[in-house]
Each structure stands twice: as C-alpha cells, then as structure tokens.
Design a protein around this nucleic acid. Structure first.
Length: 272
DNA sequence: AAGGGCACCTGCGAGC
DNA sequence: TGCTCGCAGGTGCCCT
C-alpha cells in the first residue's frame, strides 16, 4: 500500500499532531513485529518524549528525547493512526502508544508485512537516495550500473528509496519508457525524462494525499485521492488516456503487476 | 555476485 | 449461498 507519497502524508500529520508529546505507556505491542527480535521496545520508549517525526524512504522515523530512534514500516496494509483512548480496538492492532495528551498512536496491519524497528543511534542501512532530491546525473549513474528492467530497478530500495509498484508504473508512463527496458540501456534523455517524471508524479500524489486503493488511510483516517488520477496502474484493458488508441497492457515483472501503454512506451532498442 | 523467484500473511472480489 | 482461486501500495532470503 504505502509508497513514498502515502508515508509522507502520514508523517506530515503525525509531525504536526504528536511532536513534543510523551509516550506515557505502551498499552500493547506485538513482539514479533519488533526488530531486533530480543529488543524490549516497551521498556525503552516508555516515558520518552517524541522530539521528531520524519520520513526516510518508506519509513516513519521517530526520534526520542535523549537520543534513540525507531521507525515504523507499514508494509502493504499498515495504518498508523491517532485515536482517542476510548476508540474501539480494531482487529490486527499491533501497537498502541498512549501519549501525554490522552490520545493513542495505533498501528493496524492485517498482513503483518510491516515492522517496528529500533535504530538506536544507527543510520538507515541499505536505503538509496530520496527521489525528490535526486539529480539526473546521479540517477543515471545508478540505473546504468544494472542490466535489470528499469521497472525492477526503480523498485529496488537500495538504489532509490520510496518508489513502489504504483509510482514506478506511473513515472515510466509519464516518461514514455517501456518498463522492460534494461536500466543500463536508457539514454541520457530518457534518464532526464524519468527523473522529471518521478518527481512530478510523487509531488502530485503527495498533494492528493496519496493513493487509496483499499487499505490506505492517513494518520487521521482520511483516504487519499490520487488513485483517481492513475494513468496506467490498475487500468489493464482500458484505452490509454494519452494516445487514446492503444489499450493498457499488464505484464509481470519481478513478480509484480506492471501496467503500460504499448504505443506510448515503445522499446527504444538502445538508441542513444 | 547480480538477479530471478518465492515465501511471508490476511482479506476480498470474481467466478463457478 | 458458499466454495476456491487469484491477486493486493513490500521486502528479505535462498538459489543459481
């Protein structure tokens, strides 16, 4: 579910609503969602003030007073919401932090692909650069170092952070690049177009509060609206909104559903 | 040693 | 109505 725009939307609300609050009590935590496995999360965070909430990649990073950080990853179906203390507890609630203003921060995640990770003073390992701060030259360097399909490369979080299945498809469509094109075969022009497309798609999606296909809601339970503006994702067999001639195709790449317009996104045979 | 494939989970909608 | 199947915004690990 949550890619960069959804995580960013959650973080913006959290930063505004819970920064400066104290974690009074860990009312509930599912131990097997916490990393490292033997870490006593409740003991460590109880009584600490949340000094800062920010996004890095698809991670929601909490910095506590007196140092120490942890992040929450939402996986596919995670929801991190601010609730009144007396709100009914939903099925698959895995974390409840009671805050000093009597509200609670709750993590609900049916599929449990998410995680609560204690970082301490460590930095984020294995996470590539933020796409919104990426220069085309840097993107080119990264993409030209791999023979994988450009779509698969975009999903590699160690290469670029935050892009997932929806926004990879949308950015490639906007840049008119076929998703199976080997990343190393992209021309300098294509890399530049892709860099622009990634930023434009992500920024617009953030402005729309992200995409809500099924589970996603922000920290106040609101759905995003960017799903209404998807050009290819989830539009298999529909007429292409750009060329209005071809129909959107769906293939599987790297085990993921991939949507594109066969006319707008043609193979370029390595023409540079 | 890069990169393909699958496993990890639960829920839901489509089709029979 | 009720079953089974396929599929879902992610990622980590095993294998080649």
């Amino acid at each position: 579910m949550p890619e960069l725009p959804e995580v960013e939307t959650v973080v913006r609300t959290l930063a505004r609503r819970i920064t400066g609050l104290r974690i009074v009590r860990v009312a509930h935590v599912r131990a097997d969602m916490v990393e490292p496995a033997d870490f006593d999360f409740a003991e460590t965070v109880t009584g600490r003030v949340i000094d800062d909430v920010r996004r890095r990649a698809k991670r929601i990073v909490f910095t506590l007073d007196a140092g120490g950080r942890f992040f929450v990853h939402l996986g596919m179906t995670g929801q991190l919401t601010i609730e009144p203390a007396d709100a009914p507890q939903k099925l698959h609630t895995h974390l409840i932090l009671e805050l000093s203003n009597r509200q609670q921060l709750r993590l609900v995640d049916p599929r449990r692909f998410g995680a609560i990770v204690w970082l301490g003073d460590l930095d984020h390992a294995n996470v590539g650069p933020e796409p919104l701060q990426l220069q085309p030259a840097r993107l080119g360097k990264l993409l030209h170092a791999t023979k994988r399909a450009v779509k698969v490369a975009l999903l590699d979080q160690t290469m670029i952070a935050g892009i997932g299945n929806i926004y990879a498809d949308e950015a490639l469509f906007a840049a008119k690049i076929h998703p199976t094109t080997p990343a190393c075969a992209l021309s300098v022009e294509q890399v530049r177009a892709l860099n622009r497309a990634i930023k434009q798609v992500l920024r617009t999606a953030i402005g729309a509060g992200g995409s809500s296909i099924r589970d996603y809601v922000d920290a106040e339970g609101r759905r995003g609206s960017f799903q209404q503006r998807h050009q290819v994702y989830g539009r298999e067999a529909e007429r292409c909104v750009r060329c209005k001639r071809a129909t959107i195709e769906r293939i599987v790449l790297g085990g993921r559903s991939t949507h594109f317009c066969p006319l707008c996104q043609r193979h370029t045979h390595g023409i540079k």
